[in-house]
Amino acid sequence: MNDHEHNRADLHKDPARVSGMFDQVAKNYDRTNTVLSMGNDRMWRVATTRAVAPRRGQRILDLAAGTGASSVALAGSGAEVVAADFSPGMIAEGRRRHSGIANLTFVEADATALPFADGEFDTVTMSFGLRNVNDPKKALLELLRVTKPGGHLVVCEFSHPPSPSFNGLYRFYNDRILPVVAKTVSSNADAYDYLNESIRDWPDQRTLSRWIRQAGWTDVAHRNLSMGIVALHRATKPRLTATPSAK
């Protein structure tokens, strides 16, 4: 495949193009992310796992799981973990790597139309995937639907550093350094151009918190990781609620 044949998603986030782009980078996706994040991806994963606080006997949905790195960390607790992703290539790579883990299941799923029953999960979590959904507000509604009353949401997503000076350095890295490194270590550098664009276009911490509340979640809170490069959002499904309808 030459460079012109690479699948390049854009900010319209057409599901087929986004899925195809991730199919193409699946094999080296985790290694590339570790290089481009300078190892911070591992710290973000640990923080997310601690926020989820998985326990034996729980059923957990890890949406946008990719090849399952985050799911494996959750499954280590003994919880039943469903790793779901829109990309067949990511799911296939995850199954290839982690087929020996009995309490980990891989499922191809659309975040805006999840193939799960109402109230099926104790906790739902999504790391670096909500930003790639063409209708993230609908995805937040779907996550609410499949969560048990009293259950929890944990979203780890790129955000906007509140410090103007640090934000300037971060944007310089993303605009000037990341594309050069991506061309060296990634099989599809165009995918990381999209990554940069999608981060720049994504709302800040307060806006995403508002979206989560509008979907019907309560006790919405967030904390910044790596000075706000990433934000970890948490919320709870009310014990008695009528799930809002998508508009």
Rank of each mutant, 00 (worst) to 15 (best):
D3C: 06
H6C: 03
D10P: 14
D14M: 04
P15Q: 10
A16Q: 11
R17V: 15
V25N: 06
A26P: 05
Y29R: 08
N33I: 07
T34Y: 08
M38Q: 03
D41V: 14
V46Q: 06
A47Q: 11
T48H: 10
T49M: 09
V52A: 01
V52C: 00
A53R: 12
R59D: 05
T67E: 00
V72C: 05
V82K: 07
V82G: 08
A83D: 10
A84H: 09
D85T: 03
S87E: 04
G100I: 03
I101N: 08
I101T: 13
N103I: 00
T105W: 02
F106R: 03
A109P: 01
P115D: 06
G119E: 14
G119D: 11
F128S: 00
G129V: 04
K138V: 15
L140C: 04
L141R: 13
E142N: 04
L144K: 04
L144E: 01
R145I: 02
R145Q: 03
T147K: 11
H152K: 12
S159V: 12
H160T: 14
H160L: 07
R171P: 00
F172M: 12
Y173S: 08
N174P: 00
N174K: 03
D175F: 02
V180T: 14
A182D: 14
T184Q: 13
V185Q: 11
N188F: 09
D190V: 00
A191L: 09
R200T: 11
Q205F: 05
R206F: 01
S209F: 00
S209D: 03
R213Q: 11
W217N: 01
T218N: 08
T218G: 12
H222I: 01
R223P: 06
L225W: 13
S226R: 02
A231V: 02
L232I: 08
A235Q: 14
A235C: 14
R239C: 08
K247I: 07
